[in-house]
Design a protein around this nucleic acid. Sequence first.
DNA 1: TATAACATGTAACAAGTTACATGATTTC
DNA 2: GAAATCATGTAACTTGTTACATGTTATA
Lengths: 178, 178
Amino acid sequence: MDERSLLLLGLLLVQSQHGYQLNEFIERNLSRVTDMKKSTAYATLDRLCDAGFVDKHMEQEGNRPPRKVYAMTSAGKQHFYDMLRENLSHADQMNFASDIGMMFLDHLSRKEVLKLLESRLHQLQTQVDAYASAPKHRYGLGVDFAIEHHLVHLRADVTWLHSIIHRIKEDESDDGIE
Amino acid sequence: MDERSLLLLGLLLVQSQHGYQLNEFIERNLSRVTDMKKSTAYATLDRLCDAGFVDKHMEQEGNRPPRKVYAMTSAGKQHFYDMLRENLSHADQMNFASDIGMMFLDHLSRKEVLKLLESRLHQLQTQVDAYASAPKHRYGLGVDFAIEHHLVHLRADVTWLHSIIHRIKEDESDDGIE
DNA sequence: TATAACATGTAACAAGTTACATGATTTC
DNA sequence: GAAATCATGTAACTTGTTACATGTTATA
């Protein structure tokens, strides 16, 4: 995914940083926006370096482990803006893992389907609570937009799941198999 | 993604099929639910075979190219039900590529952001129309549930984008940079 | 005679994950 | 003296994509 590069370049545009610093920031503040792992960040930074989008130089404070500090190049800035425009203007096709399961509902008994979906509903509601109680204004406006966006989708999902569960309960006709 | 296996196993549970047949079905009827490519399906079928979840045998009609027909094993059925239960009961963390871009809105001028987001809005609306006009009851109830699910999220996204655009228009304070 | 449909893939690549490794320093 | 924090990764693996290859038969 190219969003990982966009994210790293965006953070480096604000200020030059070393890998550990970027990873800490992402883990502490952006865990709701991305699931990028640390090794992936290090590897992506290497790639951005090879591509000439960032420069790196070593720094060391006292006896602490040496750091590789990454800084944007002008090619990197250009690339960032290109990717940002692409990202903002394009609505990419969403695919939900759970839709595959929905296709095969009739392979389980109505009772079990209800149990499973209610468990999912419960998890969704937990997620809604987590996002709704997220502290505001942590890093510019952008993160708050992203959190709001998540909430919108989570709440839509909750409403939809409620409706599906309701309809399955109503439906006395089919008792499924297995 | 394990949903690709779940999908293939689910289709094979209904009836034994060869790869080409599965791919045709997916392309014609499930393009709104999955974006799995043909080579991926062939490779996944191989893996399912190696894992003992499906058996394969050759068939040939006249001089036509030979087919590999895949059929579920009992281990495969068990695996299918395990994955289905997991899939239905679990709400996996959603991540939206577009949220990364939203974080860096302030790096572009208000005017350009509006132009970009309006383009995205237009694409979203096209997608809504496509899903809303999708023919019903193509393969059991499940596909319709999935399409309805997509529509729910697409419409939520449209509403949200509208609101974001509106707020950006209102906001006279910040004119962005670059 | 060309091209679409039938049926299978392979090879090369890109991206991401997990689990592990290293070694110093600060804190409990 | 143990554990957490600082700071970097590598190796092995999995998954998926793209572009290409192959050869037959029916259709226009």
